[in-house]
Amino acid sequence: MSSQPKQEWPLWEIFIRSKQGLDHKHVGSLHAADAQMAIENARDVYTRRMEGISIWAVESKYIHASNPSDAESLYDPANDKAYRHPTFYTLPDEVKHM
């Protein structure tokens, strides 16, 4: 890039819905001055190859994340509790996306 902006634009996380009925999925992040520019930038960066029909943009500072060092206490306890999986039911074929 020819010149670096003096003050960096804030970072945004971009979520794209690939087709009707599916969830928005996180696809990456980008810089933009405001929400409107974030959506337009996302259109240009992430939907060039027909990837989506809807865009969400969330400023990255509003994403709160769990701490990787807590992983053992948060997730390992679920490891031996197979009875929590609803695998004892048969699903009808008509139910999609489960």
Partner: peptide, 14 residues
């Protein structure tokens, strides 16, 4: 390759 920021570089190339 010369856009003011990466996102606009892609936008104008599109």
């Amino acid at each position: 390759g010369h856009g003011p920021v990466l996102e606009q570089d892609i936008a104008i190339s599109n």
